[in-house]
């Protein structure tokens, strides 16, 4: 494996130079053991083409910066080993997000807007008084919140979603999962009605067509199908007037 010659076909386009139409550029590289797309792209930039744009931050699959379309699938480039791919590797930037250049896309602006739209913070009337002992929480609940909070906002679920590709306002799995994170949090005092305002429409829970490319492409392996169905059922129950038992706030 180690002496394979890899051929990278990489999407090139600089939005600041619209006169140059998008094109695919080919680079050749000798494969090394344990090579990831992160290693390969940096080698290409340092040795062959210093103008090539792409994003990496943690290079350990925890920050979500480096998602791109690798041979058709949205994945994290940093944890994609070249030996799991054929010798010809095609790289595209993530769709849906605004292109910064070549493989770099602006996920930051998109996700900030998502946070604002879903009001992704704990809505509480309590003013923190750090001098008093913290409120108790069941460890199982804490784990449940963490399960949804593990999303790293890489955008793979959005890029893989047919609906998100054609409907600008659709929150996608990342957005609906985010709402689920706050729904299960007993510290958030929002009522089901308030959540309905956020996700009770085709922009949210009812916009999902169930194609599950999100579920299949999530690099964190979040249970997105379950989260999406959970929010959809909750919202339907509220919309049909089913009164939930008041949540117990510990």
């Amino acid at each position: 494996m180690a002496d394979r010659q890899l051929t990278f076909e990489i999407f090139r386009y600089n939005p600041l130079k619209p006169e140059v139409a998008p094109y695919m550029q080919t680079y050749k590289l000798a494969e090394t053991t344990g090579m990831t797309i992160f290693v390969a792209l940096n080698m290409i930039r340092e040795e062959q083409d210093p103008s090539l744009m792409f994003d990496f931050v943690c290079r350990a699959a925890i920050c979500g910066s480096c998602a791109m379309v690798i041979n058709g699938r949205p994945r994290l480039a940093c944890k994609t080993l070249t030996n799991t791919l054929p010798a010809k590797i095609k790289l595209f930037p993530l769709p849906v997000f605004k292109l910064v250049g070549d493989l770099a896309v602006d996920t930051g602006t998109w996700f900030r807007y998502l946070s604002e739209k879903t009001e992704s913070w704990v809505h509480t009337s309590k003013v923190p008084d750090p001098k008093v002992q913290e409120e108790r929480m069941d460890n199982a609940v804490a784990n449940q919140i963490y399960e949804a909070e593990r999303c790293i906002e890489c955008g793979c679920c959005i890029a893989g979603c047919a609906t998100a590709n054609i409907r600008d306002e659709f929150l996608g799995a990342a957005g609906i999962n985010r709402v689920a994170r706050f729904m299960v949090d007993p510290r958030d005092e929002r009522s089901p009605g308030e959540y309905f305002e956020i996700v009770g429409s085709e922009e949210g829970a009812f916009g999902c067509m169930g194609l599950m490319a999100c579920d299949d492409n999530c690099p964190m392996e979040l249970p997105l199908q379950m989260q999406l169905a959970f929010v959809r059922r909750k919202m339907a129950a509220y919309g049909l007037g089913y009164k939930e038992k008041k949540r117990i706030k510990p």
């Binding site: 058709g72 699938r73 893989g160 047919a162 590709n165 067509m209 169930g210 599950m212 299949d216 492409n217």
Partner: peptide, 16 residues
Amino acid sequence: VWQHAKMLNHFDTWTW
């Protein structure tokens, strides 16, 4: 959508 389905080559997307 057509382009997307071709690129992704994802079973559930094609079935849809």
